[in-house]
Design a protein around this nucleic acid. Structure first.
Lengths: 221, 221
DNA sequence: ACAAATCTGTTGTAATTGCAACAAAGGAGG
DNA sequence: CCTCCTTTGTTGCAATTACAACAGATTTGT
């Protein structure tokens, strides 16, 4: 890992609260290695025994799941600073259920977190901080997935939209709020058809349930 | 917390690998308190500032999410040994987004985990073990949610079924396998209508894609 | 300013779903 | 053996969705 890498790494949630020299030390404890991948190159294969967390340094990595018949589904997209495969790396006795593929030329760092988790942390005071950060990263991811699940368990497009919009409204503590997605991205997030979603939005507008312009929405009670 | 509680607690994933006296010590560090709830009594209210993880000692606790209009949705069910609200308790600066209600008369233990996470762990050697266990619990939950998400992002009932069945088949490393749900529970898990799912299963059987009898399924490539 | 590309909304149709109602099969308990 | 209750499968219908195709609006690059 070079200096440029470390400049990026130190801004990530996993290493927050650490100084550069602490980070360099930690990377040693973690046997951190960096690797570059070409676009479309596979980074992790399903079935691999996995001991390392991945962190995207630059580029874009897609997390895919393959079913019995070989159909691939994108289940996540990791950008710079994001970790992936952390659920597997932190769980004993499971093999990787996903694959990771570079969506663009990308640089990825791998860290053997289990070393820090399972060996005595007192050997290195920074370990404690790292484990806490890891806990925080996992917990946040949990909350995000929980929220997505509540939307996806709604049956109709309208219900999914209302579930999402009302939670955004609550989060931003206002009936009027901007969302961070365009229509296609919102449809992907809610796992519905974009055009069907678009007409559903219009219908809800006509019925006086919501109003919107571009990415700004308003809930009308 | 009484001795009967501790007998239950020591078998849970969060306290695995700890002896009874270690657990008693830890419960002190965590300011653990037990509380009993009547059926339908609310345990946690949305908006509460949350510092404690809940663990079900006995009974059954439903985790609910309420939307803008006050509609409640069950997003989880916690049985004895299960923890809840751990995502919130481990994340700084968020208020509770869910509510917890006793589905039966229940006993719940609350633990202030942030004490163990944020204060210097060297003060108590067992803290390290607890944080690791917590990490493991969160990671497993992550994997479970990830899997459910991959099923729910499928558009049609057939795709959801195939996604679920193929992942069970992979997990049990056999084209023939038993599932832990009856039809209604499976429909709830996949968030589809039971009768529609039932006819879809029959259709898939008629098309030679799968065979099944009761809870035993077989994928016929 | 212009052209090209992207984003958004609309519409029609075929396919799929949710829902309600009902029948058949099995289990539990008297 | 009989009754009650639960589980599962089936069917018809109304509602909803996915999909494709297209047009207008907006953005981007030159």
């Amino acid at each position: 890992m070079n200096n440029k890498d470390i400049n990026i790494i130190k801004k990530t949630p996993l290493f927050s609260g650490m100084e550069e020299d602490e980070i360099e030390h930690m990377l040693g404890c973690l046997s951190a290695v960096g690797r570059n991948y070409r676009k479309n190159e596979t980074i992790l294969y399903p079935g691999d025994p996995i001991n390392s967390i991945g962190m995207v340094i630059s580029g874009r990595v897609l997390i895919l799941k393959e079913d019995f018949w070989g159909n691939r589904n994108i289940i996540n997209e990791a950008l710079h600073g994001d970790v992936f495969a952390e659920g597997y790396a932190c769980t004993q006795g499971v093999e990787l259920g996903i694959s990771a593929v570079a969506a663009e030329d990308s640089r990825v760092m791998f860290m053997e977190v289990r070393r820090v988790i399972t060996t005595c942390s007192t050997a290195c005071a920074y370990h404690v901080r790292l484990v806490r950060n890891l806990l925080s990263v996992l917990a946040r991811k949990n909350l995000l997935m929980d929220e997505k699940l509540t939307h996806l368990t709604q049956r109709t497009t309208r219900e999914k939209l209302l579930s999402y919009l009302s939670s955004e409204s609550k989060r931003q503590v206002s009936a009027s709020f901007e969302i961070p997605y365009n229509r296609q991205q919102l449809a992907d997030y809610l796992s519905v058809d974009r055009s069907a979603m678009s007409s559903e939005l219009s219908r809800m507008r006509d019925e006086g349930i919501i109003s919107f312009e571009k990415n700004r929405f308003r809930l009308l009670i």
